[in-house]
Nucleic acid binder design. Sequence first.
RNA 1: GGCGCUUUAGCUCAGUCGGUUAGAGCAGCGGAAUCAUAAUCCGCGUGUCCGGGGUUCGAGUCCCUGAAGCGCCA
Length: 512
Amino acid sequence: MENYYVTTPIYYVNDEPHLGHIYTTIAADVLARHQRMSERDVFFLTGVDEHGQKVQQAAEKRGIAPIELADQVVERYQSLWPELQISNDDFIRTSSDRHKAGVQAMWRRLENAGAIYKDFYEDWYCVPCEAYWTETQLKDADCWDAKHCPDCKRAVEKIQEESYFFRLSAFQDRLIEHIKANPDFIAPASRRNEVLSFVESGLRDLSISRTTFSWGVPVPGDDKHVIYVWIDALTNYLSALGFPEPEQPAHWPADVHLIGKDILRFHAVYWPAMLMAVELPLPKRIFAHGWWTVEGEKMSKSKGNALRPAELLEKYEADVLRYFLLREVPFGQDGDFSFTSLKQRYNTELANDVGNLLNRSLAMLNKYRDGVLGAVAEESEADRALIADVEAMQREVAACMDKQAFHLALERINAVVRHGNRYVEDNAPWSLAKQGENARLDSVLYHLVETLRLVALQLLPFMPEKMTAMLGQILNRKVQADNFSFSADGGWGVLAAGHQCRKPEPLFPRMD
RNA sequence: GGCGCUUUAGCUCAGUCGGUUAGAGCAGCGGAAUCAUAAUCCGCGUGUCCGGGGUUCGAGUCCCUGAAGCGCCA
């Protein structure tokens, strides 16, 4: 079986879960579920980044140990994921022993490869932002006199410390070569351009250790130093797979790292360079998605308009959120979360189109045929067109998923649903029933139910609960989302004549 | 300041290699049907394709230039 490895970033425990976190994780989940249905050996990883000065200071402020603070926030993530139907195979914590072992092994291998050296580091640091600023950056931002952070305007501290460095500059040419030779390595294309121009403008070596705080993984053989965020956090993608035992885990390299655009450089430049240094294969793809605004406004703490996942889940079912987030905005672009728009998509696409097609089809099957599917005597032109459309949808959705084009996949599925509704009008089963044309009636109803079944199968990764319910109505048995595969269930004609369907129950009741 | 991207119907956007009347969804207007969650289906768009210049038999699609917005870097 072919492997498939998909990751989210590890989320920083200084932050409560918000819309951006659930967005990335839902996207990863949909990919994982789709690939499992395509019978690939899927490993879907998410987790948390617990280390760093910010967490250490926040914990001190509250008078608790960093690990206690981390435990509290970790709990929020770990209880949230099941509610959103997230099917991750593992959850990595950077405070875990297995991760620390992986990070220290990574460090040693970088060291053995001659990619690490010790020097002095001098810079200006903003603690709240965890950002370093050079003197020129402060001057350019007109912040030099006041000595404050160009981002948050709070005070920056001068920092000079002994530090280990990673020879990032040594990998500049190979990175450029790799990005150019692999057009799909960084997506979307606009991000790829940005990374390329960043690398081409010249890379500086990277400071990779700190002596100013202790909450992290110690540098092997030099306990004064803690390994700084890059090597610590990025190595999670390997440590979760057991690295360094084996040195190249079976699921490596990752098929896709899903990330927010804010951490693109770390994933598309630092991480590949590190992997080059230790001679491991690079991830096949890095996809940076966009940001959400809420009702047209940027989310921020001061505005208090950040959407809390727990509150959203009180208002909407997980599947509805999953659908909306991936349908509303092309993955990779920024988008706006508005309740009006969510309701409109729900009512038009889910309630009116999918839900109602299911409902009217099963209602007619029950009304005219006691819920029992008949045989298809003769295929009409319209029947063949419908089948061809369903099969084209299956191919095209698979292609979309390979490109993380969720919105296009959903649009394509919706097109089949609309075709189904048109097919109902064109063939008017109610007239066939009235005129006693039972052979044709059976055939039309069969094509509808089979179309619905295959539509549900394609939507299953997006809306596991809703589609389980839909398949339950069609198949008339208790079903589980992870028992379906495209090869076993995806063919046209799996349902046999004589099959009994349930009476319909509204799947997506209209919102007011 | 450098590099890049975007600007197409009321709204959100699609338009591959330049080639017949520039498309989709939503919203709006009109009609049909009645199986259904009053849902569905059909019909209806004379849009300065941001402005200006150019290349070409022909440009939304290529080149130059200007404007507005955005991103990355400095």
